Amino acid sequence: MIRTTFTAVPARNAVLAAKVAAVTAVTAAFGAVVAGASFGLTQAILSGRGAGVSITEPAAFRLVAASALLAPVSALAGMAVGAVVRHTAPTLVTVFVILLVPPAAFGADRHWSALVAHALPLNAWQRLGQAVPDPVPYPWTTAGAWTVYAAWALAAAAVTVIGTSRRDL
């Protein structure tokens, strides 16, 4: 479909920027609905048992926002990999490997390993979901986790737009 799109609109950068904006908007809305509904349903169950948490608590709101924004960050990463790889099956496998395998391999127990772990979106989401950070040798901040989200989204958008505009389809 992208070849047809580029035939109809040869300005690749504009087309891809519009696709990045559309994917971001749709997945952010989807993420917000899913995260909000999940939080609401979970709290309805937990409040019946006396363990509910209000959305006004900073850690709860931060977790819902981080969960909602994980969808567009992941979608943009997938879009960037798709723009580079250009085949569906290898793209799916590569995105899975990039987003889910490294968090299992790198931890916060060694300095170099913590640096890699802190740069991954899944670890950022886990950090944003913690009310009190785990006592680890190399902890990180919530601001750092939000920065990881922004960096992954911006880098993925740049790879999608710039990478595709520099090659033939």
Rank of each mutant, 00 (worst) to 15 (best):
A35Q: 07
V159N: 09
T91Q: 05
I55K: 10
P135Q: 13
R127Y: 08
P139L: 05
L70C: 02
A22M: 12
W125E: 02
S47I: 03
F6C: 11
V97F: 04
A37D: 12
A35L: 05
T7F: 06
V132F: 15
W146T: 05
L16T: 00
L76T: 03
N123Y: 01
R49F: 07
M79A: 13
R86L: 07
F6H: 13
L69M: 05
W140N: 10
S38R: 06
A32Y: 01
V159P: 07
V33F: 08
V9W: 11
D109A: 12
R86A: 02
A71D: 06
S54K: 11
V81A: 08
A29D: 06
A35H: 09
L99M: 14
R3T: 14
G48R: 15
V116W: 14
A29M: 03
V161Y: 00
V159R: 05
A108L: 01
S113H: 11
A157G: 14
Y138C: 10
F39M: 07
A71W: 06
A32L: 12
R86H: 09
A29P: 02
P133F: 05
T5A: 05
A131K: 11
R127V: 11
I2A: 15
A29S: 07
T142W: 13
R86F: 03
R166E: 10
T88G: 00
T164Q: 10
W140P: 15
V95Q: 09
A150G: 12
A83H: 07
R62S: 01
F30N: 06
V97D: 00
G36H: 04
L76V: 07
G107M: 03
G40W: 08
T42W: 06
F39N: 07
V136T: 10
Q130C: 00
L70M: 10
Q126K: 04
A11G: 09
R167P: 05
A89W: 03
L69S: 04
A108V: 01
V33S: 04
L92H: 08
A151N: 05
W125S: 00
G129F: 03
T42K: 05
L128V: 01
Q130R: 01
W125H: 02
T91D: 03
G129P: 06
A44D: 10
V136Y: 08
T24C: 02
D134I: 04
A75V: 00
A8I: 11
A155Y: 10
T142D: 15
A83G: 11
G129C: 01
E57G: 02
A108K: 03
W140V: 15
R86P: 06
V93E: 05
R62N: 02
A60M: 00
A155T: 14
Y138I: 14
A155G: 12
W140E: 04
G50R: 09
I98N: 00
